[in-house]
Amino acid sequence: MIYRIFACLLAISLLLTAALEARAHAVINEGTAVAGSFSFITLRITHGCGTSPTNQIRMKIPDGVIRVSPRFMENWTVEKRMKTLGTPYEDEAGNLVTETVDEIVWSGGSLPAGYYGEFQVRALMPDSPGETLWFKTIQNCQEGTIRWIEVPTREGQSPYELKDPSPFIRIVEKPHGDEHR
């Protein structure tokens, strides 16, 4: 009898533990991207700073992600801030490319606190399956700022344990049989 109750309680407590996750954060919708492929990265902002609307989003492009083009948005000014590449590459037309996007700044718009917004970027992912890429993001509101810049510092730490985790995407292996990019 008593052992049955024990087992039952153990099950209940395990369920309670599993019921964490699922919180309102700045996240990347896609979750994963295929190594070495052009991918869409959709940054989703789910809330303002309290009740204050969002006026500016700054997203840092991690090293290894190149040929970055943000989606054109009518109501926002989208600025590409550049950095010099460590290893330049040649594009299809044979031009040497020495610069790439370091940071994308969406400004001039206003995303009310009770609405969600999506900010899209297309870019070439590095050929490094298994890697997690962190797209650190600063959300500037009319009043206040949220810095989605925390990354795990310990082995095995989940980003969801952090207060303001950085949006991230996991690079996955190319599916078998898919030979062309």
């Binding site: 209940i12 309670l16 996750e21 700073c49 309290g50 204050s52």
Partner: peptide, 25 residues
């Protein structure tokens, strides 16, 4: 009573809320 205590203990392991912001900020 034993069951109640164990349930209360088990609650200690689940996730908890965090302070996000305020008005006035």
């Amino acid at each position: 009573l034993l069951a109640l205590c164990l349930v209360l203990v088990s609650q200690g392991v689940s996730a908890h809320a965090q302070f996000t912001d305020s008005r006035p900020a």
